[in-house]
Nucleic acid binder design. Structure first.
Length: 577
RNA sequence: GCGCCCUUAGCUCAGUUGGAUAGAGCUACGGAUUUCUAAUCCGUCGGUCGCAGGUUCGAGUCCUGCAGGGCGUGCCA
C-alpha cells in the first residue's frame, strides 16, 4: 500500500506545466480533468520537439477521431497564444514551445523566492530511525538507516509537516549480556579511557570476544542466559555493569550521531518499556481479540490475515518483543498526537510490522492506520553480505574517518590550507560522499556498497554536487550584486534553457519525494540539476558577458535550489571545496 | 513448502506511475584550460530491459507462468 500525505494546498507542479494544464483543461472541460491532463503531459525526447507534449491517443476513442486530427484541431484552436512561441501537431502529439522570456522570468522569480518547493500542510509525523543495539558499534547498515531517516524527516519538514525524530535503543536482552559477560570475565578492569578506545568500539570488542569464546566453549551461552536472568531479577552487580557498559555504548553512538549530523528529539530505551504493554494485553483479552492457550501462553490468531498465530505472552507470563512495540506505537502516538508514525527499519522486519499493524487493527486502535514501515534494503559489499562474526562489517566511524582522510588528500593536493580548514572541508566532503552514495539508490532495494568507489569524488557523487555548489558560490562572490529582476531577455542558449527547465522541475521533485518518501528522487534530481549547471558553466561565461545580469540571477537561483536539495539529503553545503 | 521483494550497458544505478529514438555515472579510448574552481566539460565504444506468453493504438513500466537471487515464515530482538 502506498503512503500519501494530505492533498497539497499549494501548486506543486512547474510553472510551465501549469500554464499548459489550464489551457487544455478549458478545452476539455467535462471530458478531462486538470489532474488527468497533468498525468498525460510529458517532456519530449528532444528539445527540438518542444518543451512539453500532450499525447492525444487516449482522446481518440472518446472523440472518435484520429489522434493526428485531434492534435491538429487543438493546435488551431489554441494558437495564437502569448505564452507560446508555437505549438505543433506531430504524429498524434501536441507539442508546446513556450515563450522563453516569460518562462525564464517566471522560473527565476519563483526559484529565488522564499519557500520554493515547500508547502503548508501541517501534519505531525514521527520518524523513528537508527534504533541500535547497545552491544556493538554502528556499522554501514546503520549509516544507510540514518541517512534515510534524516532525509525523510527533512523532506517531510520541507513539505510542511511537523516532524519528530525518535530512536529506540535496544539496550537489554541476551545479546547485551554477551559483551557484559566477556568483559566481566576477561576485561581485567580496563576502560575506554585506559585503552584510549572509542567507548562503543570498546564494548563491541567484548561482543566479538564473547563470540570467539562461545564458539570454543558453548557454556558461555548458558552463562549469558544466566546473566540475563540476574539482570531481570535486579542483581545489583549485574545492573551496575550493564549501566556502565550501556553508557559507554550510548556515549559512542552519540559521538557518531554528532559527527554524522543527526539528532533525536526523543530517545526511547527498551529497558524502560519492555515490561509495559500489560494494559494492551488485558484489553485484547477482554475484547476476545487475544486468548489464552492451553499451555498458558497468551496468543492472537492471525490465520485469517495469513500471518499465523502470534504468541504475545509466554506461559511464564513474560512478554515477547512485539508487546513492547505495541506499547511504544501507542505511546508515541499519545505523546506526539501524530498523524503518521514512520519506522525506518530494514526489510527483514516486514513480517513483524504487518503483524504489529494487524494486531493494532484488530484491537480497533486508531494507531493501526497511522503506522507505516519504511522498509529499506540491505547493504552488501563486493564480497557479499556483511557478517559480524566473519569480521566483514564496515564500521561507521572507520568509514567516515577513512573517507575523510582521502578527502583531505584531495583537498591538500589542490589548495594550501591550515589544518582546521582542511579538516572541516574534508569532513563535509566525506559525509557528502557517503550520504549521497547511500541515498541515490531507491530505499527498497538491496544495494551494493563498494568502499573503494564510495570514496570516489567524480561523476555521480556527493562531492560532484558540492563542487557545483562551490563553483556557483565562487561566481557570486566575485561578481557584482545579483539584480532583482531580469535585465536581459533575448536569445537564450541551450545550456541556459536546460538549466532553467531543471530549476522549474524542483517543486515537482520535492512533492514527489514527499509522496513516495523517497530521498533517491531528490538525489537524482539534484545530480541532474548539478549536471545542467556544469554544462551551463562551460558554455556560458557569466562575469563580464553581455548577459551578465541574467546569468547572475540564474546562478543565484541554481545555488539556492541546489542548497535545498543538499539540505533535503542531510548534506552540508560548503562555499569552497 | 508458502509469502514478500529484486533482475535494465562490462560494473553501479536512473527511468517522473502506460507514451515518440531506453538514460546517467564508472571503466576503456580520444579531445577541451591566456577566461568565473579541470573534483569540470565534449566525443567514441557499450542494450534480446532475466525468459515465455497476455492486455493495449502503444509495455522497461500492467497481468500470468517460468528461471535465477534476496528476505521472511521464532515463545529471538
Amino acid at each position: 500500500m502506498s503512503f500519501c500525505l494530505k492533498p497539497y494546498e499549494e501548486r506543486r507542479t512547474s510553472a510551465m506545466k501549469e500554464t499548459i494544464i489550464q489551457l487544455l483543461a478549458s478545452e476539455f472541460a467535462g471530458s478531462l480533468s486538470a489532474d488527468d491532463i497533468g498525468r498525460l503531459l510529458e517532456i519530449p525526447p528532444s528539445p527540438e520537439m518542444g518543451d512539453y507534449a500532450f499525447p492525444c491517443f487516449t482522446l481518440a476513442r472518446v472523440l472518435r477521431k484520429s489522434p493526428v486530427t485531434i492534435a491538429e484541431e487543438l493546435m488551431k484552436k489554441i494558437m495564437p497564444n502569448e505564452a507560446f512561441e508555437k505549438i505543433t501537431a506531430m504524429s498524434g502529439y501536441l507539442n508546446f514551445f513556450v515563450d522563453k522570456n516569460q518562462f525564464a522570468a517566471s522560473v527565476l522569480s519563483r526559484a529565488l523566492a522564499e519557500g520554493y518547493g515547500r508547502n503548508k500542510t501541517t501534519a505531525t509525523v514521527v520518524v523513528e530511525f537508527a534504533s541500535p543495539n547497545t552491544n556493538k558499534p554502528l556499522h554501514l547498515g546503520h549509516l544507510r538507516n540514518m541517512s534515510i531517516g534524516e532525509s525523510i524527516a527533512r523532506i517531510l519538514q520541507f513539505r510542511g509537516n511537523n516532524v519528530v525524530r525518535t530512536s529506540i535503543n535496544n539496550d537489554r536482552g541476551v545479546h547485551i549480556c554477551k559483551s557484559m559477560l566477556a568483559y566481566r570475565k576477561e576485561g581485567g578492569g580496563a576502560t575506554p579511557q585506559s585503552t584510549g578506545k572509542k567507548s562503543d568500539h570498546f564494548v563491541g570488542d567484548y561482543y566479538v570476544l564473547f563470540s570467539r569464546n562461545a564458539a570454543a566453549d558453548p557454556s558461555w551461552n548458558d552463562q549469558a542466559r544466566q546473566m540475563l536472568r540476574q539482570w531481570e531479577a535486579g542483581d545489583e552487580q549485574v545492573r551496575e555493569l550493564w549501566k556502565t557498559m550501556n553508557g559507554w555504548a550510548l556515549d559512542g553512538f552519540r559521538r557518531t550521531y554528532a559527527l554524522f549530523g543527526i539528532h533525536f528529539d526523543k530517545e526511547y530505551f527498551e529497558s524502560d518499556i519492555y515490561t509495559f504493554g500489560k494494559e494492551i494485553i488485558r484489553e485484547g483479552l477482554e475484547r476476545g481479540v487475544f486468548f489464552r492457550r492451553d499451555d498458558g501462553a497468551t496468543v492472537v490468531d492471525l490465520e485469517a490475515e495469513k500471518l499465523g498465530t502470534k504468541v504475545l505472552l509466554r506461559p511464564d507470563g513474560t512478554s515477547v518483543y512485539i508487546v513492547q512495540d505495541l506499547y511504544l506505537a501507542v505511546l508515541k502516538h499519545d505523546e506526539f498526537a501524530c498523524d503518521r508514525s514512520l519506522y525506518v527499519v530494514g526489510n527483514e522486519q516486514e513480517f513483524h510490522f504487518s503483524v504489529l499493524k494487524t494486531i493494532l487493527k484488530k484491537l480497533g486502535s486508531p494507531v493501526a492506520e497511522k503506522i507505516h514501515h519504511l522498509s529499506y534494503g540491505m547493504v552488501e559489499l563486493p564480497e557479499g553480505k556483511m557478517k559480524s562474526r566473519e569480521g566483514t562489517v564496515v564500521d561507521a566511524d572507520d568509514l567516515i574517518n577513512e573517507t575523510k582522510n582521502l578527502a583531505a588528500e584531495e583537498v591538500g593536493s589542490r589548495y594550501r590550507l591550515d589544518d582546521a580548514e582542511t579538516g572541516q572541508r574534508s569532513l563535509a566532503i566525506a559525509l557528502a560522499a557517503i550520504k549521497y552514495q547511500l541515498l541515490r539508490v531507491d530505499i527498497g532495494k538491496t544495494m551494493l556498497f563498494d568502499p573503494k568507489k564510495a570514496i570516489s569524488f567524480e561523476g555521480d557523487t556527493g562531492p560532484y554536487l558540492l563542487y557545483s555548489y562551490a563553483r556557483a558560490s565562487s561566481i557570486l562572490r566575485k561578481a557584482p550584486a545579483v539584480p532583482s529582476a531580469i535585465a536581459a531577455g533575448g536569445d537564450f542558449n541551450g545550456s541556459e534553457i536546460a538549466l532553467i527547465k531543471q530549476l522549474d522541475r524542483f517543486p515537482e521533485a520535492a512533492a514527489f519525494a514527499g509522496d513516495k518518501l523517497s530521498p533517491s528522487i531528490i538525489a537524482n534530481y539534484g545530480f541532474g540539476l548539478a549536471q545542467a549547471f556544469n554544462e551551463f558553466y562551460h558554455a556560458s561565461p557569466v562575469i563580464g558577458s553581455d548577459r551578465e545580469q541574467f546569468r547572475l540571477r540564474l546562478v543565484a537561483a541554481f545555488r539556492a535550489v541546489l542548497k535545498n536539495c543538499l539540505w533535503l539529503l542531510g548534506i552540508e553545503a560548503i562555499e569552497e571545496m
